[in-house]
Amino acid sequence: MTDALQGLNKVLDAEHAAVYAYGLVGARTSGGQRSSASAGFNAHRARRDQIRALITARGGTPSESGAAYDLPFPVKAARDAARLAALVEDRVTAAYLELAAVDDSSLRRLAALAMQECTVRGYGWRPTIATLPGWPAGRPTAPQRGEPRTSPPVSLDQ
């Protein structure tokens, strides 16, 4: 199996899980949150169908959705559902990040757009920015006076 097909299959598995999770999120929310859950469900379902078609077009066999998925924590209330939705978006983003590393520029573009969409949706559920890969947790700080600078200072407070 090519790297592209492996990446697409990993993304498809993540999209299957996202569709399942958003069904649960919608069942545990109401009002604006339910509208957001419905939009997330529809977006992930559309991406899932797109990825399935890409796998088939490349000669692969798309994976099928599981009957159920283990959840990382109990989802009993709207607050739990929002936490699950944010986590789902983080995990789907991570799957697309791997797809962004393949040689095919059209798949890299698809991955970048999907990651952007997931990040925006995730921010709607949890309005914080996760630490970027390779960065220390917490707010970046400049070295203290006299400490060697190992990399340029980073500020996100612009």
Rank of each mutant, 00 (worst) to 15 (best):
M1I: 08
M1V: 08
D3Q: 09
A4Q: 12
L5D: 03
L5P: 00
L5E: 05
Q6H: 11
L8E: 00
K10N: 06
L12I: 03
D13I: 03
D13Y: 05
A14Y: 01
V19W: 01
Y22F: 10
L24C: 01
L24R: 00
G26Y: 00
G26W: 01
R28H: 05
S30V: 06
S30F: 08
G31I: 00
Q33L: 11
S35A: 14
S38Y: 06
S38W: 05
A39Q: 13
A39K: 06
A39R: 06
G40C: 03
G40M: 02
G40R: 00
A43N: 10
R45L: 15
R45M: 10
A46K: 14
R47T: 05
D49H: 07
Q50I: 04
I51F: 06
I55W: 06
T56K: 14
T56I: 14
T56S: 15
G59M: 07
P62E: 03
S63G: 15
S63H: 07
E64V: 12
S65A: 14
S65Y: 03
G66D: 15
A67M: 12
D70G: 14
L71A: 04
P72F: 06
R79D: 15
R79H: 12
D80A: 05
D80V: 04
A81R: 00
A82K: 01
A82G: 07
R83H: 09
V88G: 01
V88Q: 02
D90C: 10
V92Y: 00
V92A: 03
T93S: 12
A94T: 12
A94K: 14
A94P: 04
Y96V: 03
L97Q: 15
L99P: 01
L99K: 01
A100G: 14
A100S: 15
A100F: 13
A101E: 11
V102I: 11
D103C: 09
D104A: 08
S105V: 10
R109I: 08
A111N: 02
C118F: 06
C118K: 02
G122N: 05
Y123Q: 05
Y123G: 01
G124V: 02
G124L: 03
W125Y: 05
R126H: 10
R126Q: 04
P127Y: 09
P127S: 11
I129D: 08
I129T: 14
P133C: 14
G134R: 11
P136F: 13
A137D: 13
G138D: 08
R139P: 07
R139D: 10
P140K: 09
A142C: 10
A142D: 13
P143W: 11
P143E: 09
Q144C: 08
Q144T: 11
G146A: 07
G146W: 08
R149S: 14
R149M: 15
T150K: 13
T150D: 09
P152C: 11
P152W: 15
S155W: 14
S155L: 14
S155Y: 13
S155G: 09
D157L: 15
Q158H: 13
